[in-house]
Design a protein around this nucleic acid. Structure first.
Length: 379
DNA sequence: GATTCGTGGTA
DNA sequence: TTACCAAGAAT
């Protein structure tokens, strides 16, 4: 029922393939969800949805997607937009380099391809932020090209379907799955077939408690036959996020201005604005002492006040224990360099802040009323 | 090949 | 509370 090919991947034969294509597509036609990006096959709309959906749940994406498409309905609109607007539309969605890459790629398409998404696979794949999966999704869904689109859902489905015990975290496994997808995807309705595989993974072949009883291809599933669907896929456990103690400064000046710092262009929250932030030193936290080097360097004469509060924020690889400290500047003798600015409330509403800073703002503003008569020590 | 990039939902 | 997860890409 299968033959061997290079790289020791077993690919199914013609008869088996025809059977699962038909059953899967029939199931998809009947059970697919109505989603905003399925209203039509506009390649730009497909593209934006695929970027938003990277590592992000459908329910989370939907409201962002609706607002984004309203603000930037086509390639020309997004290409013309200022980065500040685009980031604001992405605020809270995470992985902010996704939207920077999207914006850059869309501007490239506007300039190079007359604002039309190219149909040449190499041209698509060369765009910023588009890897193997996203290229396959755009080409198959929007342009009916018979190429695979192997995402996490599809890897889980394949791993069970063919009882593959390879660790799906590894790139080599992803390549093997890509070979399988290449052989399975039909030239007729390739986009629907790829989406059917993903939809099956999302609705039936779920990570825990898969609904094998409702599966349209149960009869062909090797994991089900062997009773090992709960053991698959194999996925190496990720390391827990590293705990870090972080100080943030809520530094106020007259006119409702607050001091903001732009983060470095590489690394966590790259290029995003936020409160001045610094990893706490060893030993007991002394807000003024730990924060002074940061700000004396900028010649900002700060009077430090009380600790406004603490909270925790978890990223993929870091767990921040944040302490927010109040500060006040009476007479500003400093000239702020690039990457620093004072911003009033109106300006702050225009900027996009990662959630960790929004938490800090909320905490500080809750205490603001009690801080009208500032009590601090001059450093 | 292993890491690094956010966030919110759920068992 | 912890652990795992959700339509990956870049380095």
């Amino acid at each position: 029922m299968s033959r061997k090919i290079a790289d020791s991947v077993q690919v199914p034969d013609q008869e088996w393939t025809a059977f699962v294509r038909e059953n899967l597509l029939r199931w998809y036609d009947k059970n697919k969800r109505e989603l905003p990006w399925r209203k039509n096959k506009d390649p730009y709309r497909i593209w934006v949805s695929e970027i938003m959906l990277q590592q992000t749940r459908v329910d989370t994406v939907i409201p962002y997607y609706e607002r984004f498409m309203e603000s930037f309905p086509d390639i020309t609109a997004l290409a013309k937009a200022k980065e500040e607007q685009v980031l604001k539309a992405w605020e809270g969605l995470g992985y902010y380099s996704r939207v920077r890459n999207l914006h850059q790629a869309v501007k490239e398409v506007a300039a190079t391809y007359e604002a039309k998404v190219p149909t040449d696979p190499k041209a698509v794949a060369s765009l910023r932020g588009i890897g193997d999966y996203t290229a396959g999704a755009i080409l198959s869904i929007a342009f009916d090209q018979p190429v695979p689109a192997v995402d996490g859902n599809v890897m889980r489905v394949f791993s069970r379907w063919f009882a593959l015990w390879d660790d799906i975290v590894k790139l080599s496994t992803r390549r093997k799955m890509g070979v399988l997808g290449t052989h399975l995807v039909p030239s007729d309705r390739p986009g629907d077939f790829n989406q059917a595989l993903m939809e099956l993974g999302a609705l039936i072949c779920t990570p825990v408690n898969p609904a094998c009883g409702k599966c349209p291809v149960q009869a062909t599933c090797q994991a089900y036959e062997q009773g090992v669907q709960a053991e698959l896929p194999v996925k190496k456990k990720a390391k827990p996020p590293r705990p870090m103690r972080i100080n943030m400064a809520w530094i106020r000046k007259g006119g409702g201005q607050v001091l903001l710092q732009c983060r470095p262009n590489e690394g966590l929250l790259a290029g995003m604005w936020g409160l001045p932030t610094m990893e706490a030193g060893q030993g007991e936290l002394v807000p003024g002492d730990s924060l002074v080097p940061l700000l004396t360097e900028q010649e900002v004469p700060v009077e430090w006040g009380q600790v406004l509060g603490e909270f925790e924020h978890v990223f993929s690889h870091q767990r921040w224990q944040v302490t927010v400290v109040d500060g006040f500047v009476r007479e500003d003798i400093s000239v702020l360099p690039d990457g620093w600015r004072w911003a009033n409330e109106t300006e702050r509403r225009r900027l996009a802040f990662p959630n960790v800073y929004r938490k800090a703002f909320a905490l500080a503003e809750k205490r603001k009323k009690g801080l009208s008569g500032f009590q601090g020590r001059l450093l």
